[in-house]
């Protein structure tokens, strides 16, 4: 079953083309990764997907809904972790979770979520006094607090320490096992390899490959490297010397 369908998505900011032509499908229950260089249009793609930005062209369906038209319904069912987002400086961790859970008809138990993300000791700390990684964990928790059917996570583990990254991976797997479909934007190839069922590789606003991490590695044609890694494979697809997609 397909839960997200994107075809020929286009988005410009003035003269700057951020997304030239992106198409992919995400199936129910999978962890779908999006990788690619800085500025290749990943964040813009997921922002269009979640109705935060209006696409200039192409078609998007999320759970059968059009993000530009059915924003309210979409937002009840999709949890989003933005790459850059903030909360008021003086808001405490528990207050943020309590507040955001009140926005949804059937929220998750925010206390359990707070514990799973290792934030219980910081429950009374205000947002401004959290470390970067703790802010990130809170951001992940807020994306999941509405019990979404789809979670969109943009640079989920950037800024987390190694242990927190692994804990967060485990959390994402558990969320998926509960039946949630996950769309994950990442720059970490180990994360993509271990977590994602399938990966879309984007370059300059276009999808250059969609496959499982293992297939991407197997298909990789990297001159002078006998046993390429996923990173080699992705770099070969997106680097300056890569051939243009056809």
């Amino acid at each position: 079953m397909t839960v997200i369908e994107v075809s020929n998505l286009q988005k410009r900011y003035g003269d700057q083309v951020a997304v030239r032509d992106v198409s992919f499908e995400v199936r129910a229950g999978e962890i779908f990764g999006i990788v690619g260089p800085n500025g290749s249009g990943k964040t813009t793609t997921v922002e269009c997907l979640t109705g935060l930005r209006r696409a200039d062209g192409g078609m998007i369906r999320v759970l059968g809904l059009d993000p530009a038209r059915d924003r309210a319904e979409l937002r009840r069912q999709v949890g989003i972790q933005l790459q850059e987002s903030h909360l008021p400086d003086r808001l405490k961790v528990w207050e943020a979770l309590d507040l955001y859970s009140s926005f949804y008809p059937e929220p998750a138990d925010w206390r359990a979520l707070m514990a799973e993300l290792g934030l219980t000791a910081k429950r009374n700390t205000v947002f401004a006094k959290l470390s970067g990684g703790q802010k990130q964990r809170l951001s992940v928790a807020l994306a999941l607090v509405g019990n979404p059917r789809i979670a969109v996570l943009d640079e989920l583990t950037t800024g987390l320490d190694p242990q927190a990254r692994r804990d967060t991976w485990q959390l994402v797997r558990e969320v998926r096992d509960r039946g949630v479909t996950v769309v994950l934007v990442t720059h970490f190839m180990d994360e993509a390899e271990r977590l994602c069922d399938r990966l879309a590789v984007v370059r300059a606003g276009e999808v250059v490959a969609i496959d499982t991490p293992a297939e991407l590695v197997a298909r990789a044609d990297v001159p002078g490297v006998a046993r390429p890694t996923l990173e080699d494979a992705v770099l070969a697809l997106t680097g300056p010397t890569a051939s243009t997609p056809n």
Binding site: T50, L52, A72, R75, R76, I80, L82, E84, S85, H86, L87, P88, D89, Y100, F103, Y104, L142, G146
Partner: peptide, 17 residues
């Protein structure tokens, strides 16, 4: 002004509220 500068409104606009 502070809420908009910090992206608080943007964060909120990802929710049904």
């Amino acid at each position: 002004a502070a809420d908009r500068e910090k992206g608080v409104l943007r964060r909120l606009s990802t929710t049904p509220v």
